[in-house]
Design a protein around this nucleic acid. Structure first.
Lengths: 221, 221
DNA sequence: TGTACATCAGTGAACGCGCGTTCACTGATGTAC
DNA sequence: TGTACATCAGTGAACGCGCGTTCACTGATGTAC
């Protein structure tokens, strides 16, 4: 863990520099945007050691402020985690939309790409992924987080619906969406928790997910 | 959390009772089997609040001994968790074997039953399940835990092999086993972490798993 | 333009808390004689 | 059978630690006049 503050207050302005020794040494008392700096620090720490092990005191250290400073911007420790979590869902939703756009809505390739986007998210941000989907009682109860999650899953259902309409499949799109979700979620968890590595280290997770998508989307009759 | 000690030392013996006031009041100094009592207390606490939030001090309280007592039986806090975890894998393996035996080795029903057994385990012991498969750096490095996990997955591969041999499927059994595992693992996680409940509360997880098994085991040509 | 003032984002010290682990100890137990 | 003794599973107090949160405060900043 680096000890040099990130998102530190800006250097003394030129006016300060011209104000003599005292002025030149004086740092800015107010942080530029401590709120965002603390969110960034928290995100960094969550990435580094996971949401369970994150401490507010460390986020303060990283941001270079006293441990009392966050309470001017957040209700409590929990609120920062909620924000991180909600933004995570927003980003995942964006990734999914991007994947669909790249491959064309209504195509099988788009469905597969959604799955890969999900797994990629977990791969690149394992700790955040765990925070978003894991069992964290307080986060589960937070409404903004909840809505961001709903929106994310809604995007998947919508696209599955688009695909099966064009492909002439009759199964309930929600069921197929849940099947896909279940599989890529399992793949994500087993991947980032190192369980695949223990038991089947040579596995190609993306290929696995593609095959699963094909299995679920085979016309059933 | 109950405050009355479980697995407390046995009541004073009859000899004590006949030994007058001092003897009657005297409790046994040595615990009958503190090692197992602490493992049981730990298991109970892990069930209650999860492996991350478990404290050794609480296990001592539950077992009714001082916080120093465990160090006569265990290296450190970690070792008790390892034992819990290894026993978890052993029990899951036993459940899987039982499921196979019930439905007959080599049948499709046995494959489905393995999946249901896996999900059932997670459903009944969510915290232990998380401890076994989640990202807990120290547990992941523990060799006995590792071997118990390997054995568990080995059972699944073996049975998949039995089935596809009789069904005339040509796919690599390890790939199919991983597919099944991935799906039921995803289902278990989404179920116990309350993610299904948020987004698709009406879902029948067991039916979902059965359908997935069928999809993976359809002859591919 | 200069000055008085309200605002409020920061500080730093302290709080109560509970943890894991260590330590010298004590006293129940089983065994050798 | 009785006794001396070694063993070792327990105790209880203490350790250093770090946490989240609160508190009265300070001083930089922007604004009204």
């Amino acid at each position: 863990l680096s000890t040099t503050p990130i998102h530190a207050p800006p250097e003394p302005s030129e006016a300060d520099a011209h104000a003599g020794d005292a002025g030149a040494r004086r740092l800015r008392y107010h942080h530029g945007d401590l709120r965002e700096a603390l969110i960034a620090a928290t995100h960094e720490l969550v990435i580094e050691r996971g949401g369970e092990n994150f401490t507010l005191a460390d986020a303060c250290r990283v941001a270079g402020v006293s441990t009392a400073a966050p309470y001017k911007h957040f209700r409590d420790k929990q609120e920062i985690l909620e924000i991180i979590c909600r933004r995570g869902f927003d980003r995942m939703t964006a990734n999914i939309h991007a994947a669909i756009a790249t491959h064309g809505s209504g195509t099988f390739a788009a469905i597969v790409a959604i799955g890969h986007a999900y797994i990629d998210f977990a791969r690149h941000e394992p700790a955040l992924f765990r925070l978003m989907f894991g069992q964290h009682p307080v986060l589960k109860a937070a409404e903004p987080v909840d809505m961001a999650g709903q929106a994310c899953f809604g995007s998947v259902i919508q696209e599955v619906q688009n695909y099966i309409a064009t492909a002439g499949i009759k199964t309930d799109p929600r069921v197929i969406a849940v099947q896909l979700w279940t599989f890529v979620h399992g793949a994500s968890c087993l991947l980032i928790d190192g369980d695949y590595a223990k038991v089947a280290p040579d596995i190609d997770v993306d290929a696995l997910a593609s095959a699963a998508a094909a299995a679920f989307l085979k016309p059933s009759n």
